[in-house]
Design a protein around this nucleic acid. Structure first.
Length: 925
RNA sequence: GGGUGUUUAGCUCAGUUGGGAGAGCGACGGCCCUACAAGCCGUAGGUCGCAGGUUCAAGCCCUGCAACACCCACCA
């Protein structure tokens, strides 16, 4: 074996082998366990969030596969309709073309080309992370089966009256030229203005203050062109006499009725509200209540249409705003302008300011779907981990509004509706069915609805459509409901909620029993990773490494804003002066697991990866140590005897496995990783390997003991590697095969080996206590040596004082080990009544451990150290005595707590006495 | 406006039923000792956000406050 762990050398060949041998497919005749992957965009690239999420899923899948389940990790990708539309449009733009220049069919062909050209990238990246997805069952949300599923769902929902077409206000993206759903609106506070505009009153009406106009306030003066009313609060004394009066709309001249509506807040602005039903959601409601006209003044691209005065026609909305304001000012109708901070709705894809716009769209009537979906979580058929996300889910679901599912784009699932010459819509699984259902003659021409469906409509069918629905496939019967969904809180509404609704509707069962919600990956400073900030880390750059020039080039490529490039380059050069090393997939995966604390975002820090890469190296070298110490014959059937260290490490391994299984059961990937790390490094390596050395190197006097140590070294290493495999598959596979070969055991792969169980090993309290005693003495001696400046290779004499029978027995059992680990030359007991020589002292329970100074030591320094120890012990003792002096404590606290405190008191008193005695001795020198 | 989360060592974070504050990284000192310098040994560092309360006992339970982050709703 090489002296260093080199992930580059082992990872790719292993993955290729696993895949080629079909080991990712679920075992037959085993209890099923299934996770459906949240489908990455087919043309996307792997980012940190993916890496994180897939690591957690792969850990679960590998764990359950090893635990004997028929584990299926269902693979698939998403067609990402809007994202792809934008990419292909951008590609066309470089050729100087617009989509309409080439037509729908050619455009759709381009989209498919795009899928085919880029579709493989994400799969390769998943492989590089070690993800054990079942490639044989790979699906795509636009594949034939999915198209059938989508049409089936659409038709059935339509037939049940849960899909309908209706003209109403929607969130309109004027840049993309499509409606979007409520969820795709991102509102951010931005600095704007509040314009106060005078609307002249008609027929001699006056305000209470005597003015012949009312003043309305608006943040969007251009919408004035579509005003059809003015509203005041019904109880507003200032305006009550104007209710029913009329005002004249400036610039347009239209007559506006003044209506009373409780929606108006008398405290805001002047208490007068202009009503633009076609361009504001609240105004629309007000308009409906009062029968106001709905006058649309925008084209689809938010330029002013022909229903506005000629002067503004064709102007972009922002140009129109300027013109309107200027004209109002000219006319003396602009009373004032004040700065005003308010929320601006923007499209999550285009970042364009959205407009409420009146259009015909397809909708899902959501309430009948939401009710059973709420119930499924309420009654525990689905549970969220962490639990608090159930409240997030409930809050949204209980107030959810109808879902706008049609998009005015070309990329995506086309809506299965056809129009006859009279414009009536006929829904069907295909045109023939639509015609048949409508009883239309073959010669009646039909045209299909031009719109496509919201991408999330097909995603909502993910768990069951991937398994074959609407066919009743064996996979569907076996693996649905899936066991757990692993996803981020950012798509609970987009995806999780909709999957639950659709699955309950069409499968009559839940899509998954558990929803594990993980945090989002941020950079080391807690800032969200994003392309524009240039602070993102590509997981594969951490796995395979990347040079600084390449990293800089990658981060500044395709930046929306050129001026950011300079800044990003500077920070990149500062943060990664040498680029990024190839840490390997195992180290990265271990990091993701270790950082996966529930309900928290992950602040991703490369230094953690480095630490866990070092951990990989530690495992590597530990295995090397074990293999090189197997001796000539390796393990044999000759009698073996387990020594205390062997019994201890087995007992500790059992406790590690208890922690691990508990952690996996509760989705505590962080505790899982920590338990493995702690055991492997600080127990197996730091102590156990060291404890075996005296035994192995003194084989002649104790061959059975050496055999016991060898056997234990191998067995515990085997357990450790199996326990760690779900987190770090590559290195564990490599080392496990070495180990298995040396042990002469069977088994081709650690990923097919059984996951170790606590019951495989025995608890051994006696060995635990003995080795803990030994460790305490060794650490005590080491501390004294270090503080006294004794060179590592110099052995020291050791004196033991006090202590009981147990201490003597333990010394007898571990003396050889103690000598080696503490660098001790001689060990002598001081008889009772004998004065101790001047010495450095350390107390372990009743036992006092002394390293005589013999004049070659800095007495002053030791005195200072002892004083500190005396002070600390004195403080501890005082605290314990204070507690015990408290009558309430003694009478009310549980007996065992009180007894423990009394024990502590005795220990501390003894320790203090021993320390003081030694301190006095030193001071007498 | 409503809601959720966070606040523990210089940094990033654990702390599972309330019973003597932990890890990793970083810092400091000493070591190339026959698995590992990607290592070994040791040391320092915290009034657990603030103020109350419950309790014999609070990092943990309750109340209030503050700061930060996020979600939902949007008074134009």
């Amino acid at each position: 074996m090489d002296s260093h762990f080199d992930p580059q050398a082992i990872e790719r060949p292993l993955y290729a082998e696993w895949e080629a041998r079909g080991w990712f497919a679920p075992a037959d005749a085993a209890a099923p366990y299934c996770i459906a992957i949240p489908p990455p965009n087919v043309t996307g690239r792997l980012h940190s969030g993916h890496g994180f999420q897939q690591t957690l899923m792969d850990a679960l899948i590998r764990y359950h596969r090893m635990s004997g389940r028929g584990a299926l990790w269902q693979m698939g990708t998403d067609h990402a309709a809007i994202a792809t539309q934008m990419l292909v449009e951008r590609q066309l733009a470089t050729e100087g073309k617009r989509p309409e220049d080439i037509g729908r069919d050619a455009f759709v062909a381009r989209v498919w080309e795009w899928y085919e050209r880029h579709g493989g990238e994400i799969s390769e990246q998943l492989r590089r992370m070690g993800s054990s997805v079942d490639w044989g069952r790979d699906r795509f949300t636009m594949d034939e089966g999915f198209q059938a599923a989508v049409r089936e769902v659409f038709v059935r929902l339509f037939d049940d009256g849960l899909i309908y077409k209706k003209k109403r206000l929607v969130n309109w993206d004027p840049v993309l030229g499509t409606a979007v759903s409520d969820l795709e609106v991102e509102s951010e506070e931005e600095d704007g203005h509040l314009w106060h505009i005078r609307y002249p009153l008609l027929d001699g009406a006056r305000t209470a203050a005597g003015a012949d106009f009312v003043v309305v306030a608006t943040t969007r003066p251009e919408t004035l062109l579509g005003d059809t009313g003015v509203a005041v609060h019904p109880d507003d004394e200032r305006y009550q006499h104007l209710i029913g009066a009329q005002a004249r709309l400036p610039l347009v001249g239209r007559t506006l009725p003044i209506v009373a509506d409780a929606h108006v807040d008398p405290e805001f602005g002047t208490g007068c509200l202009k009503i633009t039903p076609a361009h504001d959601f609240n105004d629309y409601e007000v308009g409906q209540r009062h029968g106001l006209a709905v006058l649309n003044v925008f084209h689809a691209d938010a330029t002013i249409n022909d229903d506005a005065p000629e002067a503004y026609r064709g102007l972009d909305r922002f140009a129109a705003r300027k013109a309107v304001v200027a004209d109002l000012e000219e006319l003396g109708l602009l009373e004032s302008v004040e700065p005003h901070r308010h929320a601006i709705p923007r499209g999550d894809r285009s970042n364009a300011v959205l407009e409420p716009w009146l259009t015909d769209q397809w909708w899902v009537d959501i309430a009948p779907l939401a009710a059973p979906a709420i119930a499924a979580v309420e009654d525990g058929r689905i549970r969220f981990v962490p639990k608090q996300f159930e409240n997030v889910y409930f809050a949204w679901m209980r107030d959810v509004r109808d879902w706008c599912i049609s998009r005015q784009q070309w990329s995506g699932h086309r809506i299965p509706a056809w129009y006859d010459p009279e414009g009536r819509a006929h829904v069907g699984r295909d045109e023939a069915e639509a015609r048949r259902r409508a009883g239309l003659d073959p010669e009646v021409p039909l045209t299909q609805d031009p719109d496509v469906l919201d991408t999330w409509f097909s995603s909502a069918l993910w768990t069951f459509a991937t398994l074959g629905w609407p066919e009743r496939t064996p996979d569907l019967a076996r693996f649905h409901p899936t066991d757990v969904l692993v996803t981020g809180y950012d798509i609970i509404f987009f995806w999780v909620a909709r999957m639950i609704m659709m699955t309950l509707r069409f499968m009559d069962e839940v899509p998954f029993r558990t929803v594990y919600i993980h945090g989002l990956v941020r950079d080391a400073d807690g800032v969200k990773m994003s392309k524009t900030r240039g602070n993102g880390l590509d997981p594969l750059d951490i796995v395979d490494g990347i040079g600084l020039p390449e990293l800089v080039a990658k981060r500044v490529a395709d930046l929306p804003q050129r001026q950011m490039a300079e800044h990003i380059e500077a920070t990149t050069r500062r943060d990664y002066p040498d680029g990024i090393s190839a840490y390997g997939a195992d180290a990265l995966r271990f990091t993701y697991c270790a950082l996966a604390s529930p309900g928290r975002d992950v602040n991703f820090d490369l230094s953690r990866v480095e630490g866990y890469r070092n951990f990989c190296n530690k495992l590597w070298n530990a295995t090397k140590f074990v293999l090189m110490n197997l001796g000539e014959t390796g393990p044999s059937d000759a009698p073996a005897r387990l020594g205390l260290p062997d019994r201890w490490i087995r007992s500790r391994a059992r406790q590690m496995l208890e922690a691990v299984t508990r952690a996996v059961d509760t989705y505590r990937f962080d505790l899982y990783a920590n338990a493995v790390y702690e055991f492997a490094w600080h127990e197996y390596c730091d102590w156990y390997l060291e404890l075996t050395k005296p035994v192995l190197w003194d084989e002649g006097t104790n061959p059975a003991g050496a055999r016991g140590a060898r056997r234990t070294l191998l067995e515990v290493l085997d357990i450790l590697l199996r326990a760690a495999h779900p987190i770090m598959p590559y290195i564990t596979e490599t080392l496990w095969r070495e180990q298995a070969a040396a042990a002469g055991g069977a088994g081709e792969s650690v990923m097919l080996a059984p996951f170790p169980q606590p019951g495989d090993l025995d608890d051994d309290p006696e060995a635990d206590a003995a080795i803990e005693w030994l460790k305490a003495v060794v650490v005590g001696v080491r501390t004294m040596r270090s503080e006294l400046g004794v060179p590592p290779r110099t052995t020291v004499p050791l004196l033991l004082q006090g202590g009981g029978e147990v201490d003597r027995l333990r010394l007898d059992a571990t003396e050889t080990l103690l000598r080696r680990l503490a660098g001790v030359e001689t060990i002598d007991w001081l008889e009772a009544g004998t004065d101790a020589p001047p010495a450095s002292v350390h107390v372990v329970g009743d036992l006092t451990v002394l390293v005589p100074l013999k004049g070659l030591i800095d007495v002053e320094q030791e005195r200072a150290r002892l004083s500190k120890e005396v002070d600390k012990s004195g403080r501890d003792l005082n605290r314990v005595r204070g507690k015990l002096a408290n009558e309430k404590f003694v009478t009310r606290a549980p007996e065992q707590i009180v007894a423990a405190e009394r024990g502590k008191e005795a220990d501390l008193a003894g320790k203090l006495a021993a320390l003081r005695a030694q301190l006095e001795r030193l001071e007498a020198l």
